[in-house]
């Protein structure tokens, strides 16, 4: 029984490692594609297209994830080979490769989270409020009141009616002499 579980552990470690590597390989190439497809004339630095923002951070994080997954998968496979009686002789220094696992555990999700937050910041600047459809799809009933305000986007909508009385955006953003006459 124990032997079977130990073997299952090795197999699952191998499969999980390579699975994680595939996930982050896909993410890496998608991030690279985002950077590449919009990098020349439509670059964020030139034209203000911010869709590429954060893609480089995601590429770094995904690379760490691929390294972590490959090392995990290979170590699982090595354990399987050793367990089956194979004679594996590795140099001492090769153990440094296992550092990819702790590094990847921290760096991969950290950088990917950072890149995702950047994408959220881009998504929240939705000037024509197309994202109202997203709020509607999410089942919010409060969106109708707030959609249309210049300072809000649809993602703010469910919260805006509650926040409005306590939130003075115009007076903070304009110099005191330039207030609208109607206010």
């Amino acid at each position: 029984m124990n032997e079977a579980f130990a073997k299952l552990l090795m197999w699952s470690f191998t499969a999980a490692g390579y699975g994680v590597a595939v996930i982050w390989l896909i993410a890496f190439f998608r991030a690279a594609g985002r950077r590449d497809s919009q990098s020349v004339e439509a670059s964020g630095f030139v034209s203000g297209n911010r869709a590429v923002d954060g893609a480089g951070r995601v590429m770094l994080g995904a690379a760490a994830g691929v390294a972590m997954g490959v090392v995990a998968g290979c170590s699982g496979m090595l354990t399987l080979i050793i367990n089956a009686g194979g004679d594996v002789d590795m140099p001492e220094l090769f153990g440094l490769a296992f550092l990819a696992i702790p590094v990847g555990l921290i760096a991969c999700p950290g950088l990917v989270l950072w890149g995702t937050v950047v994408s959220w910041r881009v998504a929240e600047r939705d000037p024509d409020l197309d994202a109202a459809a997203m709020v509607a799809a999410a089942g919010s009933t409060a969106g109708a009141n707030a959609v249309g305000g210049e300072q809000t986007d649809a993602l703010d909508a469910p919260f805006d009616p509650l926040d409005a009385p306590f939130d003075p955006p115009t007076s903070l953003q304009k110099p005191s002499g330039e207030r609208d006459a109607g206010r």
Binding site: N49, R50, A51, D53, S119, W120, V122, A123, E124, R125, D126, P127, D128, D130, A131, M134
Partner: peptide, 8 residues
């Protein structure tokens, strides 16, 4: 979502 926002 970011693509949608940029497209819009």
């Amino acid at each position: 979502a970011a693509d949608e926002a940029v497209k819009s």
